[in-house]
Simulated assay, not measured.
Amino acid sequence: MAQFQQELGHLYGPQVHIIDSPFLGGLLARLCSHESVQPEINRIVEVLYTHLISIAMNNEFDIEAFEQKTRMSDYHPDNLLKGHRVSANQKAVSVNLARAGTYPSHICYNFLHFSLPYQNVRQDHIFSARVTDSKDKVTGSEFGGMKIGGDVRDAHVIFPDPMGATGNTMVTAIDYYKKHIAGPAKKFIALNLIVTPEYLKAVLKAHPEVVIYALRLDRGLSSQAVLDSTPGQYWDQEKGLNEKHYIVPGGGGFGEIMNNSFV
């Protein structure tokens, strides 16, 4: 299907879409600055995820032709409105990967209702936490509880998780749906604000069919020669995570700033 949005050129493969938008990129940079505080933070997140879910739906969901009457049809009955829209005959599940994904998932869940009937839209909830070693390095993800409301058979399963850092949470969540929830899903779609090369490699190695949409690629700890190259050209040498597995340049912990809770 034709792409409706300009994307950053890279060599990570066709499953990865890094949106090249001056407006969204500038707004994301504003979100990452020290000057951005609540309630502005969540207002920016809402704009960013509204655009991101719209782009993903245009590209990944089934599209149908339609024609309909308008308010002018009483005067011009032979002139119907004709166009294309997201087909209503499909299902979607937005997965809240708490806590950074809680508000983004709610935004996406609400947005899906503009195109799909309420019976075809669901929001699931998974409480996920980083597992770290004695040096605060991430070693995995731990799920503390979940509310999953049914099967995902032939559904678009969407994971709106702002920070694609190590990929551990995303890999574990998709693993769970594949192994424990009746399917198969039509597609697994990750919606991230920021991703690292390490995240892309981990997710695609574990689940090569996953489609990833992001607004920014951060690989700030790479050498200058790597930074000057096309993203993905020297994938093994690209580095976007520091020793504690935080993204650089990143924007700090989005779960903390969105909830105003720094624990």
Rank of each mutant, 00 (worst) to 15 (best):
L215H: 02
Y49S: 00
P208M: 07
L8N: 05
N120A: 10
Y118N: 15
T196R: 02
A225Y: 12
W235A: 12
I212Q: 00
T70F: 03
E67P: 08
F188T: 07
H34F: 13
A129T: 09
M170I: 14
T102D: 14
T169L: 04
V95S: 00
S33D: 02
Q68M: 15
P160I: 02
F66C: 06
P249F: 07
K201D: 12
N168E: 14
F114E: 15
K69A: 12
T50I: 07
G220E: 09
A182K: 13
S115L: 06
K179C: 05
Y213C: 06
L112D: 02
T172F: 11
N242G: 08
R30E: 12
E256H: 13
S115Q: 11
H84I: 10
D161W: 08
Y213M: 01
H156F: 14
I194T: 10
Q5N: 12
D228E: 13
K178A: 05
G101Q: 01
G13H: 09
R71H: 09
G251T: 12
N259R: 15
S128P: 04
V210H: 05
I19V: 15
E60P: 01
F111M: 14
K201W: 03
N89D: 12
I212H: 00
Y109V: 03
G150L: 09
Q6K: 15
V37M: 10
Y75Q: 14
L48E: 02
G220Y: 06
M146D: 04
S36E: 10
D20K: 14
H17I: 13
F66D: 06
I247K: 02
G232I: 00
L8I: 07
Q233M: 08
V16A: 04
R43V: 12
K205P: 06
Q233A: 12
V138E: 09
V47E: 05
R130M: 06
D78Y: 14
D133E: 04
K186V: 06
G183V: 01
N59D: 13
E198Y: 01
E209I: 08
G253S: 15
N168Q: 13
V37F: 07
D228C: 02
P162S: 11
D236Y: 10
A155S: 14
G183Q: 04
L11E: 14
L31T: 02
K239M: 10
E238Q: 05
V47M: 08
Y109P: 01
R219I: 08
S36G: 09
L221Q: 03
I18N: 02
K135G: 03
L52T: 06
A206I: 03
G164Q: 02
V210D: 01
A173L: 03
T132V: 15
N96Y: 03
L204K: 08
R153V: 07
M258E: 13
M170R: 04
Y246T: 09
A190E: 08
F66A: 01
K91A: 05
G167T: 00
F61G: 03
Q90K: 02
W235T: 06
L11K: 15
V138K: 06
V210M: 04
P77Q: 07
